[in-house]
Simulated scan of single mutants.
Amino acid sequence: MNDESNVDYQQEIDTLRNRFGFDFVSIALVQPAEDQFVLTWQYVSGNLNKRYKRIVLYSGKGVAGIVFKTGKPIFMEDVNMGLDSKDLFNYPIIIAEQLQSLGAVPLWKGNRVMGVLLVGFRHGNQLTEDIFEEFQSEIEPVFGSLDTKEMVDQ
């Protein structure tokens, strides 16, 4: 992740949303919390409501928590095929924003994941692997190297 003072994250995610036609784009950032680090959605574009503000994720929980813990992107072309409906409560951003097709990538600062960039559509099968790869190549100059770690398929 580039030096935060040099990047207007809100402007960058608005630009990404318009460039690719995503319905929703958001950045979750690590927030220190006593002895545990939590992730909260700090920047959003295309949101349906403000429920994202109440979502707090721990490492390994939810889309952001999994990407944060593994340091690997997540790609779900169709949420209904990738997740059991009984497990959706573990993914509050998917429910809050009614996402059906999504991808998330880690944002690095040095050798640590400091945030997660999520993009999504509200209809299934809209985010293809080709679009996701193109998106990742275009964000690297702004957000820094995403490393070349293999993707986590859900």
Rank of each mutant, 00 (worst) to 15 (best):
N6L: 15
F89G: 07
Q31K: 15
N125W: 10
V63C: 05
N125V: 06
Q31A: 12
V38S: 03
R112P: 02
D14Y: 01
R51M: 10
G21K: 01
N125T: 12
M151D: 06
Q136N: 15
S26V: 03
I13Q: 00
D153H: 15
G120W: 00
E77W: 03
E133L: 12
P92Q: 06
R17A: 11
R19D: 08
F121I: 02
Y52P: 01
D14I: 06
T148C: 10
F89R: 03
T148W: 11
K149R: 15
N111E: 14
D153K: 14
T40H: 10
R122Y: 07
T40R: 12
R112M: 08
I131Q: 12
R19P: 00
K72H: 11
I95P: 00
V119R: 00
P92L: 03
L48I: 12
E12L: 05
Y9V: 02
S137L: 12
K69R: 14
K86P: 01
G110L: 03
G71D: 08
L39I: 05
S45H: 05
E129P: 07
I74E: 06
K109W: 05
M76A: 14
G60Y: 06
S45W: 00
A28K: 00
Q154I: 13
T148H: 15
F132R: 04
E34F: 13
E134M: 06
M1C: 08
V44I: 09
